[in-house]
């Protein structure tokens, strides 16, 4: 089992996510991360992360390619791509020490504080999935009341 990344270009029509995701459900594969964005052309790009062996990954690529609204399925090598995740963190009321700790770690990781009111704050971070996990762990998960994550967005490093 290896981490697989598909970048799927498809028509931006209702139901397209369901058509894509049911290919995974049917084969009992869990999707680790799924993000959708609209390209300048008006087409949608779905980026999917999942674990599968070679045979299953290739079968899924063909199954998804076969779907009517799908235009192209790009298989992205995690080793030669840029992976980012954005996370918004909302804390509970903090004491002064905790406040400084959160601000310190967020700023050290290149993030920023978006809102603060009373003793609570909202911070933004971006980075690899692992980087973000690390920051949350360093601060201590009990500090956060809500964590909103974008899922992983990926682009291959290749330039024309």
């Amino acid at each position: 089992m290896k981490t697989r990344i598909f970048s799927i270009l498809c028509e931006n029509v209702p139901g397209v996510m369901m058509r894509v995701s049911r290919c995974f459900t049917r084969r009992q594969i869990n999707i680790d991360s799924i993000t959708v964005g609209i390209e300048p052309s008006g087409l949608a790009r779905i980026i999917l992360l999942f674990q599968a062996d070679d045979h299953m990954a290739e079968l899924l690529r063909r199954l998804i390619s076969r779907l009517t609204p799908v235009i192209d399925v790009q298989v992205i090598d995690p080793g030669t791509s840029i992976v980012r995740e954005v996370v918004l963190l909302k804390t509970r009321r903090l004491n002064n020490d905790e406040m400084w700790k959160v601000m310190h770690h967020v700023e050290k990781a290149g993030g920023r504080i978006l809102e603060s009111k009373g003793n609570a704050l909202i911070a933004e971070l971006s980075g690899s999935h692992e980087d973000i996990e690390k920051v949350i762990e360093e601060i201590g998960a009990d500090v956060f009341r809500e964590v909103a994550r974008s899922g992983q967005v990926i682009i291959s490093r290749e330039l024309e």
């Binding site: 045979h55 063909r62 390619s65 076969r66």
Partner: peptide, 8 residues
């Protein structure tokens, strides 16, 4: 004609 069938 359906590549999905190949090697399935």
């Amino acid at each position: 004609i359906d590549p999905v069938e190949i090697g399935k």
